[in-house]
Design a protein around this nucleic acid. Structure first.
Lengths: 205, 205
DNA sequence: GTCGTGACTGACACTGAGTGTCAGATTAGA
DNA sequence: TCTAATCTGACACTCAGTGTCAGTCACGAC
């Protein structure tokens, strides 16, 4: 999955990208996403506007590129699991891998989630990523079974639902300042699919 | 729910909006969404660019404003139902109301769905609408029950999943040229939540 | 060492979305 | 008929994102 940088060029590019994102992120938190322009960012980072734009195609990417590996993490996790489990269990475990990957720096992730939540443009881009990931995850979910027709409505619905769970849970977790236990939150969310579906009394946290 | 135009000003505004959208829609289908500019649209419609922009805040809205009433349709449907049904049944029936509302002109809806599918910007905006609708639908789903804490993870997950179903089903239906039966598609999709969750052999269509 | 290739950079020009303002025309309603 | 609210077109403006171009730099081959 991981696109580890190989070659000095790639290493350099990766490092520059990280540094630009770091500087930009501070600006966004300070002033607000919409108020900051590429001109501001490039000035703060000490590069030209052209150069900044070469590293990040859009302003949203400057914040959200940290989520790019998540799709790979999920698909890898699905591959690694025993295939005799049911879909929901496999998806739940794969999501646990994803959140474990994301929660490297709790403080940073909480800040990013806060920034996303209060910026419609970022929310929209997040949802776009979510949609991009779905086909690949569906393929992995179905790979171990016989029917690999790739057009299964049920698998698509389940993956879409699971990805919604991911963001709902991350939203909750971020709102709690990173206090709540992500595993419990995932369980509570997935209970929506396993409980009798009549009453929605949340699973005891 | 419906914001019926009242007063001559409102009627006029509504009619102009519809006509502008009609002209624009033809252009989009002919040339492609991204290739058409507001200058093109306003010229084709015989108004100034300023005026066109006053009727539609963004280019996406020109296409997607037809979906605006859907949230109201869904919440109304949820209100009208017998509350003794389980969440999934209520959501499924509410979604049926939504698609029945949308399928007024089959041909037009199929065209719109096709346009959306092949235009990332439109997909993103659709997902934004979907996210805007969720809180209100969650509130209505929970209204009839005791727990109205408004922060129920389970209700949020179920509504989010149902809205994903809506677009997945509409996507399928659009891809089939409006041939397939929407009720059956909804049943097939909701089976993702009721079947044993182990095998994903689609329900027999 | 140096030469050529390919990538990186900054400068610049450009298109187009979206915002805001302003004066004049139009219309609703008293 | 008069007045106030609204609609309209014209214009200027900011900023995102694309594309080009010439100069610079790093790397590998010879």
């Amino acid at each position: 999955m991981s696109a580890a940088p190989v070659g000095t060029r790639e290493i350099s590019r990766h490092a520059v990208r990280a540094e630009l994102a770091r500087v930009a992120f501070n600006r966004f938190c300070l002033t607000g996403f919409d108020q900051v322009t590429f001109a501001d960012l490039s000035e703060a980072a000490g590069v030209s506007r052209s150069t900044f734009l070469r590293y990040f195609g859009t302003k949203e990417d400057v914040v959200l590129f940290v989520f790019d590996p998540v799709c790979g993490v999920i698909t890898d996790a699905l591959d690694a699991e025993r295939a005799n489990q049911d879909d929901w269990s496999r998806l739940r475990n794969a999501l646990e891998s994803a959140v474990r990957f994301l929660v490297g720096d709790v403080r940073e992730l909480v800040t990013i989630l806060g920034l996303i939540e209060q910026t419609p443009a970022l929310c929209a881009r997040v949802r776009e990523k979510q949609a991009e990931w779905r086909p690949e995850i569906v393929a992995r979910l179905q790979k171990t079974t016989s029917s690999t027709d790739g057009s299964s409505v049920i698998a698509n619905v389940r993956v879409a639902a699971a990805l919604e769970v991911l963001w709902i849970v991350l939203g909750r977790w971020g709102a709690s300042g990173g206090q709540e236990d992500l595993g419990r939150l995932l369980d509570a969310a997935f209970a929506a699919f396993s409980t009798p579906a009549c009453q929605q009394a949340d699973a005891p946290l």
